[in-house]
Amino acid sequence: MASPWFEGTPTTDRRVTGGGSPGIRRVEDPADRIVRWDGRRGADDDAHGRGPESHDSWNQRVRGETPTQRLDRCYAELLQEVRLAQAGVQLLLACQLSLAFTPRFAVLTDDQRHLYVVGLVLSCAAAAMLIAPAPFHRMLFQQRLKRQVVVAAGRFVLCGLLLMLLAMGAALMLILSVVVDGRLAVGVSAATMSWCAMWWYAVPLVRRIRRTRRIASVTAVTDRRRG
């Protein structure tokens, strides 16, 4: 199956024709035989080459979805992401809650106890944010605010993932402080958190920025063509 044309991945079933402005390729997608203008690899132009189209318009044309159906699908996809994240934060929180009742907890230093409390609070906060989409949706049920629910739930999940990352760092630092030297524990914990942050936030953000710039450049070329 060919990669979507808007993902910027070259495919073998797309036909590139000449013409147009320098650096602009005319790409025909055989899936729906709609001609679009794109930049270096692809952009979300409408069917008439007039620049990026809205999400609702694109989903209506490609997926045959109405705006309401698109919101339902987005919320269902978000819940799948929440279930994946909740499994991690629940496991972390369960381990932290049980730690206080182990014999080894009594020999922890004051700094380690403080670190434990910080990690425990962060885990609880993360769990609360990842659970928040469910009560938020239930409180606004049948109020015709699905778009607001989807937007708010997405923000809840992003905040919950950030809190979970901090909780993981605190838990890892606590365990390493018992096993190795304090400076090494801080260094390893910081490196691990940076590794997670890179894949959770940095890489997707870079991809998003690149796509936004690519669409902006295509829009600018389209405007010059009109002028």
Rank of each mutant, 00 (worst) to 15 (best):
S21K: 10
V203Y: 06
V218H: 01
S194W: 03
V89A: 01
H48I: 00
I24M: 11
D45H: 07
C74Y: 09
Q90P: 00
R210C: 09
R207F: 09
Q148G: 07
D110N: 08
R26F: 10
R213E: 09
S217Q: 15
L115E: 12
V118F: 09
V118Q: 06
I34N: 06
A170Q: 07
L158K: 10
P22M: 06
V118P: 07
D29I: 09
V218G: 02
D72P: 03
I175M: 14
L79S: 00
L161P: 05
S54T: 15
R207L: 15
A132D: 01
L184D: 13
V89F: 08
W37F: 13
R70W: 01
Q69Y: 00
A153D: 01
C74D: 15
D72M: 06
D13I: 02
G51F: 02
L71I: 01
T212P: 01
W5L: 15
V203N: 02
W58C: 05
Q143M: 15
M168V: 11
V27F: 08
D29R: 04
Y75I: 00
I215N: 14
T66S: 15
L79P: 03
R138C: 09
S177E: 12
V89W: 02
S98A: 13
A197G: 06
C74P: 00
L71R: 04
G49W: 05
Q112D: 05
W37R: 13
D111E: 13
R113M: 05
M198E: 11
A85Y: 10
G8N: 01
L162Q: 14
A2C: 13
G169I: 05
R25S: 09
R208D: 12
V62L: 06
C74R: 14
L122H: 01
A202D: 00
V188K: 02
Q69H: 06
P67K: 03
A216R: 13
S3I: 01
Q142Y: 10
D45Q: 12
T222M: 10
A202T: 13
F136W: 12
D38H: 04
L172R: 12
G227C: 05
C95M: 13
Y75C: 00
R40T: 10
R41H: 11
L158W: 09
Q142N: 13
R224E: 12
E28I: 14
N59A: 15
R61K: 11
A87S: 09
T17W: 11
